[in-house]
Amino acid sequence: MMVQQAAASGKSKPSVPAPPAASKRKKSLQRGETIAGFLFVSPMLLGVSILVLLPILATFVLSFADWNFVAGWDGIAWIGFDNFKGLLDDPLFLKSVRNNLIFLLSVPIYLIISMVLAILIDRYVYLKGYFKVAYFMPYISNIVAVAVVWQVLFQPSYGPINEMLKAIGFSNPPKWIADPNYALYSIMMISVWISIGFNMVVYIAGLQSIPRDLYEAADIDGAGALTKFRRITFPMLSPTTFFLMITGIISTFKIFDVIAVMTQGGPIGSTSMMVWYLYDQAFTNLKIGYASSVSAVLFLFVLLITIGQWGLQKKWVNY
C-alpha cells in the first residue's frame, strides 16, 4: 500500500497531506525505486545508446561529409547537402529505390497466400502440425543455404527448373536470376516463398482469437462459407493483416542477405536495392559519407512508414 501511494504521489500530488514521518519514509522509498529502476534498465540503455543511438546520430552527421575511410580522420571534408544531391543524380541509387518500390508488391502477394493457407490449415485439414512445420521450413533455414539451393535450381542452362520447363515444351525458358528482366522477380518469388511460413503462423494465431460464437450465429442465420469469410474472418483479421503489412513493408526496405548471396545487385544493377547499394558504397567503394546519406534516406523511408502507420491504423482496423 505504502509503495503504491508513493508511486501515485510521483505522478500527482495527493490531496490529503501525509504526516511528516510517513512523507519522509515515502521519499526514501521512492528514491529507492528510482535507483532500482535505473539499475534494472541501465544495461539495455547503455547498449542501445552505444550501438544504436550514437551510430544513428553519427550516420546523419556523416551524411554531410565526403570521406574515404582509409584516409583517416583528417580526410573528412564537409560538403553540406552534396551527397543528397548526388543521390538524386545517381542512376544506380534511383534504380535501387525503384527496385525497393517494386519489391513492395511481394507483400500483398504473400499476405494473401498466407491468409488463405492459414484458414485452410486452421479449419479444413487433417494433420495440422505437419503443415505448420512444412510451410515454416524456409523461414528457419539459413538464408545462405536456401539461396544457394535456389541459385542452382534456377541455373539457366542445366538447372532442374529449366530442364523441367524444357521437358514440358518451353524451348526457351527465362534465364531467371541471370536475366536482368527476370532477376528481380525471381528474387521476389524466393522472398515470397520464405515469408509465407512466418505470416501464416501469425494469421493462424489471429484466427484462433476470433470468438467461435460469431460463426455459430452466422450458421444460425444460414450464412455460407464465403459470407462468413467476408463478414467475419476478414474483418476480424484486419489488425493482424495491418500488423503484417507494416512489418512486411519495413522488412522489404531491409532486404540484404538474399541479394548479397544470390546476385550481388546484378546483373547490371537489376537487383540492386537500397541496403545492398549502401553496403556496396560503404564497404566496397569505401565512400563512407555517401553511404551514410543512403542510410539517412533509408531511415527516413522507415520513419515515414512508421508514422503513416499510426495515422492509418484507426481507419483500417475495423472493429
Partner: peptide, 9 residues
C-alpha cells in the same frame, strides 16, 4: 531505426 542505417558508424 533499421539496423542497416547504423552499420557504417
Amino acid at each position: 531505426v533499421p539496423g542497416q542505417a547504423t552499420l557504417v558508424p
